[in-house]
């Protein structure tokens, strides 16, 4: 009998899920393209071919050019950098806050727990999108602020999930043994609790990334997110909408890219969830 750890089992199940593998493959390709954008993009994202203006796809510009004569393919590749960066960094922020909050609340329990979770409940009920817009208006449209603001909104569910998991672990023997040996709270969190809840964290993080990217796209679409000359997929879609009557490709290609990425992330996240926790795979 081979060693059937949770992870090797999960990887086996994941590799047999074709939709998830396809999603994962698309994601890896996208990340590689985004990282290599300065080298593989046919043009610079701000290079203007002034003779051209908006032109439909051609052999020189595979996806055509925008109204300022900029190569659309190059702009999508550079946009991938910003969109994916927002997705990963903001999810990272949410992860750090949510996991710390959930572990502390779940492990310490009692009054601390009920106060901390009551705060989460209250925050859940507030219109956060409005607060992000408010922050962007007040402090200017700054990329790092955007990361922080989105991350600060998305941590709530993570905190709930982690707390639930920690409460389940708290009374197991290995935790009690560690307590008896006088392990400090901090190393209890790091060495004993965290490794045991990595699965649900990984699943939820993968499913948070598309939500974060949607939020960024939403803000950029309203003109409150990424500012020119930088472009994300959200701003490209916004530009595309403004000129879609005559130049529909400016909307369609960025839109397809964005949608495929969200599909890939969702399929991969769902696959990961099913692989790590086969019981929930029906929902």
């Amino acid at each position: 009998m081979k060693n059937n750890s949770l992870w090797s089992d999960a990887i086996y199940r994941l590799t047999r899920n074709r939709a998830a593998m396809l999603g994962g493959f698309i994601l890896v390709m996208l990340v590689i393209c985004a990282i290599l954008a300065p080298w593989i993009a046919p043009y610079s994202y701000s290079f203007q071919d002034l003779n051209l203006g908006a032109s439909p796809p051609s052999s020189e510009h595979l996806l055509g050019t925008d109204i300022l004569g900029r190569d659309l393919l190059s702009r999508i590749l550079y946009g991938a950098r910003i969109s994916l960066l927002v997705g990963f960094v903001a999810t990272g922020v949410a992860l750090v806050i949510g996991v710390s909050w959930g572990i502390v609340a779940g492990y310490i329990g009692g009054r601390v727990d009920s106060i901390m979770m009551r705060i989460v409940d209250v925050l859940y009920g507030l219109p956060f999108i409005i607060f992000i817009i408010l922050l962007m208006v007040i402090f200017g449209r700054n990329l790092w602020l955007l990361f922080g603001a989105i991350g600060a909104v998305e941590w709530l569910t993570m905190a709930r999930i982690v707390r639930g998991q920690v409460i389940g672990l708290k009374n197991q023997e290995f935790v009690l043994a560690a307590q008896a040996m006088g392990v400090s709270n901090l190393s209890m969190f790091r060495r004993h609790l965290l490794p045991n809840i990595l699965g649900p964290i990984a699943v939820y993080a993968t499913l948070t990334i598309p939500q974060v990217m949607l939020l960024e796209g939403f803000l950029s679409f309203l003109g409150l997110g990424i500012q020119p000359p930088m472009s994300s997929w959200g701003t490209l879609i916004k530009d595309g909408v403004e000129s879609m009557e005559e130049y529909s490709w400016l909307l369609i290609y960025p839109g397809i890219t964005f949608t495929i990425t969200l599909f890939a992330l969702n399929f991969f996240g769902d696959g990961l969830r099913d692989a790590l926790d086969p019981k929930t795979s029906d929902n």
């Binding site: 598309p210 949607l214 916004k238 909408v241 909307l251 964005f258 969200l262």
Partner: peptide
């Protein structure tokens, strides 16, 4: 349903208009 979740409203709206 998956399409509905992955195509955001700011894309769905303009596409329907188009």
């Amino acid at each position: 349903a998956m399409i509905g979740i992955c195509v955001p409203s700011f894309l769905m709206g303009p596409l329907l208009v188009l």
